Amino acid sequence: MNPFDVLEIPSDASPEDIKAAYHRLAKQWHPDRYTGAAKVEAEARFRDLAEAFSILKDPGKRLAVMQQLPKTPVAASTPPGKEKDAEAAPERTAEDWAALAKEAFDAGRVDQAQALIQYAIRMDGKKPQYHALLATILEQSGGDLRMVVKALEAAVRLAPRDVDSHLRLATHFRTLGMVARAQRHLETAREIAPNHPKLRQTAPRGGKGAAGAAGQKGKVQTTPAGQPGLVDQLKDLWGRLTGKG
């Protein structure tokens, strides 16, 4: 079943168009308006309409349907002289889907944004910014923290010098109780950008710095008096990342 055909709408119909089409056709095919054999047909059509609406109002299900649909031919109602333009209209790229995801996220449509960015990642999983955006969306929606971490790890694998993703991983690993991993990402971020505004310099003047000291293998490191420990650093970092610091 093609839900767009059932609701008699194009594949680029807006959520408002989908809702309006459903209500219009549901009213037209409501079984209470028919009797006999016509009522049986109306019941079947009514069920199809409900199923189509259920699919298309869910951003994730809608994207899955669109992915399976063949290219839409030029409609018969295309104005004369516009056929070539319609045929030449390019399909949306991963970048287009990612832009739509960012737009939906900025508008507060978090679920839709997640479905859109995941679709972009399926099309092109080699863009670190897509994974970073997915992590941001999951953070906003209160999703599984381990899924957030997975998205950020994908981002830093593709862009090892992505300081913000390293800092976010540090705070999330601290929340998960994985202190060693948190410290590793914090030190990596400091090595890449020691003057990053979200990093607090913890080494005393003239010292080697926390990253250099921590790099000495086989030695137990102690925190100098008056210098914050890793947990305090991460708490401070989380405040800076969230704007609460």
Rank of each mutant, 00 (worst) to 15 (best):
M1G: 11
N2S: 14
D5C: 08
V6W: 00
L7S: 04
L7Q: 00
E8G: 13
A13R: 01
E16M: 12
K19A: 15
A21W: 02
Y22E: 00
Y22N: 00
Y22A: 03
H23I: 11
L25F: 01
A26R: 08
A26G: 12
Q28A: 15
W29K: 04
P31E: 07
R33E: 06
A37Y: 09
K39R: 15
V40T: 13
V40Y: 11
A42Y: 11
E43G: 07
A44V: 02
R45W: 10
F46P: 03
F46M: 02
D48C: 12
L49M: 08
E51K: 14
F53M: 03
F53N: 03
I55S: 02
I55N: 00
L56R: 00
P59T: 03
P59N: 06
G60Q: 11
R62P: 00
A64Y: 11
V65W: 01
M66Q: 14
L69P: 04
T72C: 04
T72K: 02
S77C: 09
T78D: 00
T78Y: 04
P79W: 08
G81C: 06
K84F: 09
A86H: 07
A86T: 06
P90C: 05
D96T: 04
A99S: 13
L100N: 05
A101P: 01
K102P: 04
A104F: 07
A104L: 06
A104S: 10
F105V: 01
F105S: 03
D106Y: 08
A107V: 05
R109I: 05
V110Q: 13
Q112H: 09
A113S: 08
Q114A: 15
L116N: 03
L116R: 00
I117Y: 03
I121C: 02
R122Y: 09
R122K: 15
G125R: 09
K126Q: 14
K127M: 12
K127D: 14
K127C: 09
P128Y: 01
Q129D: 15
H131T: 02
A132Q: 09
L133N: 01
L133K: 01
L134E: 00
A135K: 03
I137Q: 04
S141K: 15
G143S: 14
R146P: 04
V148F: 01
V148C: 06
V149Y: 03
K150D: 12
A151M: 07
E153L: 10
P160Q: 08
R161V: 13
D162H: 12
D162Y: 08
D164R: 15
S165D: 06
R168S: 03
L169H: 05
T171W: 03
T171Y: 05
H172L: 15
R174H: 15
G177S: 01
M178G: 07
M178I: 10
H185Y: 03
H185V: 00
L186F: 10
E191W: 10
E191G: 11
A193M: 08
N195T: 12
H196R: 05
P197R: 08
R200Q: 14
R200W: 11
Q201M: 14
A203D: 01
R205M: 12
G206S: 07
G209A: 08
A210V: 11
A211K: 11
A211D: 05
A214H: 10
Q216L: 14
K217V: 11
G218I: 07
K219W: 13
K219T: 11
P224Q: 08
P224T: 06
P228M: 07
P228T: 06
L230H: 05
V231M: 14
V231Q: 13
Q233G: 02
L237A: 01
G239L: 07
R240K: 12
L241M: 10
G243R: 00
